[in-house]
Design a protein around this nucleic acid. Structure first.
Length: 552
RNA sequence: UGUUCCAUGGUGUAACGGUAGCACUACUGAUUUUGGUUCAGUUAGUUAAGGUUCGAAUCCUUAUGGAACAACCA
């Protein structure tokens, strides 16, 4: 067995580092800010960080980047942990940037003592103005000339709460003329008299991302700190801090974040959809949030497979939603229990069926030899889908039509004899005859039909609510579309059917089971099911006939 | 107008100077008691121009195109 070793660029770096002896083992981290729910884009990062560590015998820390108390909340801390676990990963240590606040403060003092940081009394506007522009150098103000002793005292006073929010900041003293804006005396600490979800009111100054992230990596001895492309310009600052402090040299590497068609991936936009009621909650099954996908019926395995298939590189990408759907179908096809459910019924009366009822058997999953069978009751009155009958069928229509025969799945072949209509001309009932010797499993009729329909016995059917989801947006590339992204929300992203007719075995539907409603799609029980049954459609089945019909 | 990053079929991703491959999509056909699945096949690609080389997707140069960078956010 010779394995092809198509490595992505991060795997190449890691293998080189391991081979050269730079590291004996690797340590990565997944560093979410607890200010929102995790989404499929985070899943890519999670699979990457945990996956890389797993592949190379290393470990991964889960570290909450909680340096901005006003936006963060324990609700998110909890949901993030749940989602990472659900995706199937185990972290080495559960950590918080806030664990390091004391250490980070000491680091800041160290920079001040080296003359590399100063307290600035300027307003946010002044600082922004003095920063210059990408093409114009910034200018340094007089506060940069404060003495070390003065800065030390002022910084201590900042911590002690002597100043109001915004009154002073601590800045690194680097280079106001740098072509890299992040090196133009970046802010290190700001004053926020705010309650922090973990440290409470112990602090009124909080480190900025750039002063917290790299040092946190370093404290934990993270070897490979993997983040998204937009942090590339931060890397020189990341390295500068570590070098000036003389601490463990973690290294930052950047990859392209996931973008997907027909959805948005920014926490800000997703939060907006929730807050403005365009969706019901973060776990509304239309959302790309992990919690939402879980509720919708996506399996963790299918999401991991998706993340594996999309690969990792440095170029911007827009992944086809179809690939995600392919991954769930592939997984669910092997595992989902087959059931029959009629969504939009039309009654079929089998005129020559004289028995009251009989029990038939149908396989739970044709892909699984050991999947077993279930009982399905049959009687003289059944429902089939309206769309499975046409009075005037087009060519290649293999379903029911006057004089045409079809197989009822796991039951008999029937032939349509008569179409019954009401006064308005609507079809109310189809009258058919069945072929007694065509019974599934013991068919001696010798008749071959092309179409097989799902059905349910009228008197045995149970009803349930079905929620059918479609893409959340109408535009393929939402981020690139003109104007407000909310203009492109798909008004038909949710279709609720109050009553679909299901075979009786589904009264026992369980939350952890996945179902394939034959010819309809993959479904799972929604958490709203209590006192009633609610099914979410995870994804449709591929529909070859829809394409065929479109051509005509 | 500065700096940085990127450029391979419709989409995504390989090929590490030596036959441009894989997956999804699309399209054919076969099988099928799900118009599902499965199987077989087809279409389709190196941004451009120069150079280096026996040989370039790969190295160099220039151009073109795209993206990122100025928040007391991360």
């Amino acid at each position: 067995m010779s394995e092809e070793k198509n490595l992505n660029f991060l795997e190449e770096i890691i293998e080189a580092d391991l081979k050269s002896g730079k590291y004996k083992s690797i340590l990565t981290r997944f560093p979410p800010e607890p200010n929102g729910y995790l989404h499929i884009g985070h899943a890519k990062s999670i699979c990457l960080n945990f996956g890389l560590a797993k592949k190379y015998g290393g470990k991964t820390n889960l570290r909450f980047d909680d340096t901005n108390p006003v936006t963060e909340d324990t609700e998110y801390v909890d949901s993030i942990q749940e989602d990472v676990k659900w995706l199937g990963f185990e972290w080495n240590n559960l950590l918080y940037a806030s664990d390091y606040f004391e250490q980070l403060y000491a680091f800041a003092v160290q920079l001040i003592e080296k003359g590399l940081a100063y307290v600035d009394d300027s307003t946010a506007e002044e600082i922004a103005q003095q920063k210059g522009t990408p093409t114009q150098a910034g200018t340094r103000n007089g506060f940069a000339n404060r003495t070390i002793a003065e800065n030390l005292a002022l910084f201590a006073d900042m911590r002690a709460g002597k100043y109001a929010d915004g009154e002073k900041v601590l800045r690194a003293k680097i280079d106001m003329a740098s072509s890299n804006m992040h090196l133009r005396d970046p802010l290190l600490y700001r004053i926020k008299h705010a309650h922090h979800h973990r440290t409470g009111n112990a602090w009124c100054i909080y480190p900025m991302y750039d002063f917290a992230h790299g040092q946190s990596d370093s404290i934990e001895n993270i070897t490979h700190s993997i983040c998204t492309l937009e942090f590339i310009p931060h890397r020189p600052l990341y390295d500068w801090c570590i070098e000036q402090l003389g601490i463990f040299p973690s290294h930052q590497y950047e990859f392209a974040r996931l973008n997907m068609t027909y959805t948005v991936m920014s926490k800000r936009k997703l939060l907006q959809l929730v807050n403005e009621g365009h969706v019901k909650s973060w776990d509304d099954p239309r959302m790309p949030a992990i919690a939402a996908m879980r509720r919708r019926g996506y399996t963790a395995a299918s999401i991991r497979e998706f993340c594996d298939k999309i690969g990792v590189a440095k170029r911007e990408n827009l992944i086809d939603l179809g690939l995600l759907e392919f991954c769930v179908r592939e997984d669910l096809n092997k595992t989902a229990l087959r059931r029959m459910v009629v969504f939009d019924p039309i009654k079929v009366v089998i005129t020559n069926y004289t028995k009251d009822e009989e029990i038939l058997f149908s396989e739970n999953n044709p892909e699984d030899e050991n999947g077993g069978n279930r009982e399905v009751p049959f009687s003289s009155e059944i429902y089939i889908e309206k769309e499975d009958f046409m009075e005037v069928p087009p060519k290649k229509y293999f379903r029911l039509a006057p004089g045409q025969m079809v197989r009822l799945k796991s039951a008999y072949i029937i032939k349509c004899d008569e179409v019954v209509k009401d006064d308005a001309g609507n079809i109310t009932e189809l009258r058919c005859t069945y072929i007694p010797e065509s019974k599934s499993g013991s068919d001696t009729s010798g008749i071959h039909v092309k179409g097989t329909l799902h059905w349910v016995s009228v008197k045995h059917a149970i009803t349930a609510e079905a929620r059918l989801y479609d893409r959340l947006f109408t535009e393929e590339n939402v981020a690139d579309a003109e104007g407000d992204f909310k203009n492109y929300i798909n008004p038909n992203s949710l279709q609720v059917i109050d009553a679909v007719y299901a075979e009786p075995s589904l009264v026992q539907a369980k939350f952890d089971e996945r179902y394939q409603f034959i010819r309809k799609g993959y479904f799972c029980l929604d958490k709203d099911s209590s006192g009633r049954i609610v099914f979410n459609r995870t994804v449709t089945l591929k529909d070859g006939w829809a394409k065929e019909a479109k051509k005509a």
